[in-house]
Nucleic acid binder design. Sequence first.
DNA 1: CTTGGCACTCAGGAACACAGAGTGCTAGAT
DNA 2: ATCTAGCACTCTGTGTTCCTGAGTGCCAAG
Lengths: 337, 337
Amino acid sequence: MLDDRKLAVLRAIVEDYVSTNEPVGSKALAERHNLKVSPATVRNDMAALEEEGYITQPHTSAGRVPTDKGYRLFVDRLSQVKPLSAAERRAIETFLAGAVDLDDVVTRTVRLLAQLTRQVAVVQYPTLTRSTVRHVELVPLNERRVMLVLITNTGRVEQRVIELPEAVDDTRIAHLRAVFNASLDGCGLSNVPELVADMPERLPVEDRPAAATILSVLLETLVERHDEKIVFAGAANLAGADFTTGLRDVLEALEEQVVLMRLLGETTNDTPSALTVRIGSENPYLRGTSIVATGYGSGDNQLARLGVLGPTRMDYPVTMGAVRAVARYVSQILAAS
Amino acid sequence: MLDDRKLAVLRAIVEDYVSTNEPVGSKALAERHNLKVSPATVRNDMAALEEEGYITQPHTSAGRVPTDKGYRLFVDRLSQVKPLSAAERRAIETFLAGAVDLDDVVTRTVRLLAQLTRQVAVVQYPTLTRSTVRHVELVPLNERRVMLVLITNTGRVEQRVIELPEAVDDTRIAHLRAVFNASLDGCGLSNVPELVADMPERLPVEDRPAAATILSVLLETLVERHDEKIVFAGAANLAGADFTTGLRDVLEALEEQVVLMRLLGETTNDTPSALTVRIGSENPYLRGTSIVATGYGSGDNQLARLGVLGPTRMDYPVTMGAVRAVARYVSQILAAS
DNA sequence: CTTGGCACTCAGGAACACAGAGTGCTAGAT
DNA sequence: ATCTAGCACTCTGTGTTCCTGAGTGCCAAG
């Protein structure tokens, strides 16, 4: 049904439309891409493509525009990821290398990606689940309060102020800290709950109330942070592009962690490290936007996802190239630290 | 020059224009606000007000619109801050009370303010300068690396991974930690540099290289964080309002810490706890927007600033009320912890 | 299967008229 | 001295009409 030339026409339509933002007509097509056939022939092919639902015309007697289905075919079969230039790669590398801590890595990554793609970038914080406890710190604030600080091997720090059920002096706090660290250091976060379950029983009876309180907060911290924080950057890039779904909706989604979570999450499939593209109506919310995402993290265990959100009419090859490259570099940086 | 009735007319114009977003004419004015004079009289007053530069007409034979100068007079002399309703106050209180740590307080505050005012809210993180060291923690990661964690009395945690110039074993790290804490605990952050200056000399010679490295990172941390982080929320509220200065500019400014810093910073005056309003062209960048800001923090020492950014045409009394109320509650929460 | 020709459609722009809101001014009323 | 009423004038915004040009679909010939 769709011979090679028809596919070539579809590819040409997508490319032209992406770059000009105007419906593309048969004549212009035949000229600009040397298809070696006449406009009339192109018209026939276009009619076929429209029949199949790959393209559509906004109104009679205007050029054609790709449909979501058309973009899908383009992404899957007609395009290949465009690698970044050497200069861009160097820029990424040096920019990310300057990061001082995990927060900084994430912030830099998201900005970088936004700038590179000229769209909205979204980065999910590395999940705790796969990471391990590096250190647990208890800092006495006064006799009834301590601050719990949990440090993971990914460089992440979680903190909570805890009200104790009774006064506890510093030496006992120090003791608790030693016990906690002895049993938790180096453990995967997902193992913490079971390791901690019978711990109060193994302690002197006078330490149990305090320990129980602290441990319950510790567990709470793990659970809460299980669904993770997401940051974005490049909202200014939305100003230019005109979204079919209102600009307002997009901005709202960006500020709503839960929605963003879903959007990124839904892009996961069997191989998390692969590039995923969701086009327009394939997205649960935000029908008018496309998302290009991928997992990142050190090789085997994927820590989280990052990606780009933009109008359906985006330059997929370039965007995919940028996302993939950035994901690789971040993974590298994180693995090194 | 400006008698009471002219001021009343100006006030009426501002109020009407803010609520309708349309230039307001003499007839509508005379009717809606019972001024007890005829439209013709109002017209005379309007002519006078225009002469003085408080209002202007977009084109001949359209109604009048307040100028920046007009809003200024309105804010300074013709309006009074509108207190929140009891329900709103309760909502603020319960929402903020649920915060678990400093990050959470800031995040909740900024969202709350955005929702309350239906505009873009901006909150600066409490500055470290006035806060004191609660604890310094050194966590050995491996023999050549330690993680420095600085905990302040405001609940803020700063962290850095440090590469040591030479291998240092855990007991010496523990010793350094003890020394640091002994000399820094409870000190104001601004005093840290001098306290730390001669510290290496007081240490055993073999600890000096490591100590010097760590301390230099510590100082760096203080300096870097001196100009503070700013977060925003409610960007979606920009979608409705039409800004004279492009939407893009505003979004860019929001993501650019430095610019945001300036905008908030420039609003400071002698009494930081007072509400400050900068209207339109009074702003260094972003001429088309107004900013309502105030300091927050426990009474005497102001920790940082927060505020709202919106179109010049905003409801100042309501916005000011919300900003003031939120600032008060946050200060309260922070003082309590 | 491709191509040239031709009639048809429709969005977008230009030209135009017109109603309505609003103003400024002047002369009379209070 | 100030307010008011009346009136002529000036715009913007809207609706109408017309026209052009890009683009299509279809048909018949190569």
